[in-house]
């Protein structure tokens, strides 16, 4: 007999036990491990998808911020350029104004210097003229310049026009018949007496004169009372001469030029 029924029964039981044991120790653990791995992979994939989405959002945010930053940068650049241009214009105007002020000041300074030099030159000319005149008078006429000046001053007083005379007389009246005689040189008693007599005669009054010496003038004599002045000085002569020359130059410049050119 090839079939032993006890063995068949025993093998059936053995097989069923083996089914149970393998279910417990083989299939279930293996399937659980596979399921766990699949869940892990699914969760990692979901996590990766979420991270990818976050990365995409971050990339979009970054691009948007970058675009905004570029726009802001361009706007700031435009503002800075405009502000720099405005500042440049302002500084240019400021510099231009400062340059104009400086030029004006320089011009004034030059004019002042010219005036000062002119004054110095004028005084030098006066001094030289007076020196030459004094020597000439002394050598040729044996006469002192100061005496001649006093004589001329006295003569001028005698020839004073009525209008000027009455005007000065009013000033004398205001000054209670006192006047000041200023001269560049010290007047001698005879000269003071001549002037006193000439003044009294000119204004028909007993004028109280006070004589002072001033180094403001090179030569000449001034009579002043309450702002009124009668002067016979070299400055007034030179001023008149300068004015006369200027008038001649202004009116007939070509003639003078021709005369200069023809002069050998």
């Amino acid at each position: 007999m090839l079939i032993d029924w006890f063995t068949v029964l025993a093998q059936t039981v053995n097989f069923l036990i083996l089914v149970w044991l393998l279910k417990r120790y083989l299939y279930q653990p293996i399937l659980d491990a596979i399921d766990a791995r699949e869940q892990r992979i699914a969760s990692e994939l979901a996590d990766a998808a979420e991270k990818q989405q976050l990365a995409g959002q971050a990339r979009d945010d970054y691009q948007q911020k970058n675009s905004e930053f570029e726009q802001q940068r361009d706007a700031l650049l435009r503002q800075a350029t405009a502000a720099a241009e405005t500042e440049r214009q302002r500084l240019l105007a400021q510099v231009r104004t400062a340059a104009e002020d400086l030029a004006r000041k320089n011009q004034l300074s030059v004019k002042r210097e010219q005036h000062l030099q002119s004054q110095k030159l004028s005084r030098l000319v006066q001094t030289q003229v007076m020196t030459i005149t004094r020597k000439t008078l002394t050598v040729l006429a044996n006469q002192a310049l100061e005496s001649a000046i006093v004589a001329v001053f006295v003569k001028q007083l005698g020839q004073l026009q009525d209008e000027a005379k009455s005007s000065f007389k009013q000033s004398l009246f205001k000054a209670k018949n006192s006047a000041l005689v200023r001269s560049a040189f010290a007047l001698q008693d005879t000269e003071q007496s001549m002037i006193q007599q000439a003044v009294n005669h000119c204004f028909s009054a007993q004028v109280q004169l006070r004589f002072v010496t001033s180094d403001q003038s090179i030569a000449g004599i001034e009579l002043s009372a309450e702002g009124q002045l009668i002067a016979w000085t070299i400055e007034s002569c030179l001023d008149a001469l300068e004015k006369h020359i200027a008038d001649r130059l202004a009116s007939s410049a070509p003639v003078s030029l021709t005369a200069q050119e023809t002069t050998p």
Partner: peptide, 14 residues
């Protein structure tokens, strides 16, 4: 064990 007809019979019965 599968060389025994009892075993193969047992499996077939299962």
């Amino acid at each position: 064990p599968t060389a025994s007809l009892s075993t193969t019979a047992a499996l077939a019965i299962c």
